[in-house]
Design a protein around this nucleic acid. Structure first.
Lengths: 319, 319
DNA sequence: TTGTAAGCGTTATCAG
DNA sequence: CTGATAACGCTTACAA
């Protein structure tokens, strides 16, 4: 593999001149520059990023560390991040599991966006103390070099449930996600608060796991109940879709016999029967905003805080 | 940020001894080693991966370059790759778009798995010529340092369609994916060949795009047709799901009035009505095999060729 | 406009 | 068992 040394030799210049030319610095004689660029082309030369990174103390990489590659919302957030990083000439480096910690510790990235509850607060704080700016999307965390932006779960669910109550519904159940999930817990807080403010004393809770399969299982249990709650609010769309599927298989009509709603506005929600009422987050836009923010931080621009991502209630057919 | 120099100084040893200790080499006196490790811990030291990579000419990273983050099958393949790479102490680095080329050219990875039709054959060949081993999953490509493993699209679809014909179906349509997609074209080849071998002269083709939305649109057109094909074979599950949704909304019964089947065996196929008949690929296992293969190549082990990933026909309710 | 040389933080060779 | 030192491939003062 050719190095800059080979290019320099072939062009008959010193290494530094070759470097200047290859980096488009203005201090090289046009003719010399041409010769160098030609030599590089002929040798099929590309600079070794590792060496450059070591010298410049920057990598041009932004890490995105997620807990797994599944899930419809990740793909949207990632796409937004990808677009914005590309615009800013940064590389997107997505990773998961042990690799995330490695890339972070070894400073193979200039900053990172975190969407991985397996990385504990302490770990993140310790990395940030190294000097690596971190943008955390799955929890609220403050500290030196740490920024966070989270969905306004509580506010959005609160608004939605109040709206449903105003339409006359009073018999609610909450189909939860994992009990240690930030998003789940805050959605539940909003749910509870809305009931409380409307003086509704009782509600049921079903314990799901944010998956279609989990929602399906709960749907089956629901069918066995004597007194079925009339409105099942699901902590995310996937749970809702699984739940509705179980009911459909037994011929229970939605929304006539039960109302259902979810959270996330995943693509699929428009392509099921009945179309799913949900709370939508503009994930692509969120990804872009966060990506721009981390770029600004890394390049020491003035920082524009990212607030909650945009959310809205999307009424469709399921309630 | 502390360097190995700081650790060495604090432990009162030379840099090289510190390096030996930190890398667990057997030539360091246990007591000295303890002192060094303690110093490292107290300083909160982690080695700078960039510097290590430059010196060792290895990164420990394997790139996975995909054309976008959406799609249910990626997440499975990625999960398989992640697991296997982690077992082998390699980092997984997923990227897309311009970043993919950058990471490849700048040699920030030791090898890569490619699932991105935007990267042309020539580009891949030129990277491989640099000495970067490449495993290509979305086309058949041969060359120095290039390996590929693709789904046996043709064979599997052929088997499936023959099986359907043997059950008495003869009036087929093919709901395609993008016309430049490798997977789509080979599935079509298998489809055609099966009809041909059974002397079935006619079939229709609907032009889709591998998405639910695309399948849905085609479903709507299908409903307007005077003579509707009795069996619609869809180039992937997402198309099939969209297609079926359009029919369901108009009350067309599947499989009574039309039969439908897909390809991929995505998770969702089990949670719709009717459950989708499909051709399943064990994506997680495939990811593991490919990951192991690239690790073997990078570490110069003897190479075990990865054949086609495992595929099977999964009969459910839609036909 | 070009060249010399130091240095980024490691690893690894060699001598002690 | 430990230490001095060159080298990985590049960028960047500084000198010429």
């Amino acid at each position: 593999m050719p190095t800059i040394k080979d290019v320099a030799k072939k062009a008959g210049v010193s290494i530094s001149t070759a470097s200047y030319a290859l980096n488009n610095l203005p201090n090289v004689h046009p003719e010399t520059k041409q010769r160098i660029l030609l030599a590089a082309k002929e040798l099929n030369y590309y600079p070794n990023g590792i060496a450059r990174n070591l010298k410049t103390q920057r990598t041009g990489n932004i890490g995105v560390f997620i807990y797994g590659f599944a899930g419809p919302i990740f793909s949207d957030v990632l796409e937004g991040i990808r677009q914005k990083l590309q615009e800013n000439h940064f590389n997107i480096v997505v990773s998961s599991g042990k690799s995330s910690s490695n890339l972070l510790q070894e400073r193979q990235v200039d900053g990172a966006i975190i969407f991985d509850s397996e990385l504990t607060d302490e770990i993140l704080i310790s990395y940030a103390n190294y000097g690596l700016p971190l943008y955390v999307l799955d929890r609220i965390l403050t500290g030196n070099n740490i920024y966070s932006s989270v969905i306004d779960n509580e506010g959005l669910v609160y608004r939605f449930i109040r709206m449903m109550i105003s339409r006359g519904h009073r018999d609610f159940a909450y189909l939860s996600g994992p009990s240690d999930a930030f998003n789940n817990n805050h959605r539940y807080d909003g749910f509870i608060q809305a009931l409380k403010d409307e003086k509704i004393e009782n509600h049921q809770v079903f314990h799901g796991d944010f998956t279609i399969g989990g929602g399906y299982r709960i749907g089956q249990e629901y069918l066995k109940m004597e007194k079925r709650p009339q409105f099942v609010y699901c902590a995310n769309d996937e749970s809702a879709i699984g739940f509705m599927q179980a009911l459909r298989e037994k011929g229970v009509k939605i929304p006539e016999e039960v109302k259902v709603a979810g959270f996330d506005n995943i693509y699929l929600g428009e392509y099921i029967t009945p179309k799913l009422t949900t709370i939508g987050i503009d994930h692509v836009k969120w990804g872009k905003e966060v990506a721009q923010a981390i770029v600004d931080i890394v390049t020491k621009q003035k920082i524009k805080e990212v607030g909650h991502p945009e959310g809205s209630i999307i009424m469709r057919e399921s309630c």
